[in-house]
Design a protein around this nucleic acid. Sequence first.
DNA 1: CGCCTTTGCATAGACCATCTATATAAACTG
DNA 2: CAGTTTATATAGATGGTCTATGCAAAGGCG
Lengths: 112, 112
Amino acid sequence: MNETKGKNELLPGTLEMLILKTLSIQPMHGYGIAQHIRTISRSVLTVEEGSLYPALQRMLVKGWVSAEWKVSANNRRARFYTLTPAGRKQLGVEESRFSQVFGAIMRVMKTT
Amino acid sequence: MNETKGKNELLPGTLEMLILKTLSIQPMHGYGIAQHIRTISRSVLTVEEGSLYPALQRMLVKGWVSAEWKVSANNRRARFYTLTPAGRKQLGVEESRFSQVFGAIMRVMKTT
DNA sequence: CGCCTTTGCATAGACCATCTATATAAACTG
DNA sequence: CAGTTTATATAGATGGTCTATGCAAAGGCG
């Protein structure tokens, strides 16, 4: 039945936080965001396009990022995303939320 | 009703791991599992019935737990779940998977 | 006694984030 | 010129979690 595969490598719910964090370093286009997360996580986390672009759209609508068409380092047209002040605030919210939930999970996992 | 109630308190994908861990302490019925997780996590994690029972059914089918009807400490009929050897093995798999993914997330979140 | 709360199991249906698959296109590569 | 890489985007499937609901029995209380 279910053999291997690592679908859902990403803990659902953390994608937007990872994107926000990535953009807090510098503005970046979607493809670059995916590469950055994959590289830094040593390929443990892979952001699929079908997850990435819808997430960026949601975040645009919510005002956490702004977007601008430019030319990439490889001379291709690309949409660069920049963290807004609201996005930076949201990053803080998600970071503290994540550590709270993670702490709770660890308490359960450490009980004997 | 529930105003500030955050949905998705639980990181999706961790529920089965938390159940396996709880049952590794001792056999327990569903209601008790939910209470245990809620108590230990200091109410950060709330396992809803609509999540719990389907999860237990899946785990039964996969052979990670076995079930037996008994009488609870409160003198009510209750279905007690016991971790099987396969379930114990699965707990190890999910623990290492979780720490791997968590480590990857932390690497992304710690980059400057 | 009648009522309410707690305990306890279970399912149906909604929701929604993520994945798979596909389409498009320009630039570089051999 | 064919193939790979870069880059964006959408449609549709998947699946786990949540909301809502139903049932039922035990125990406490006035």
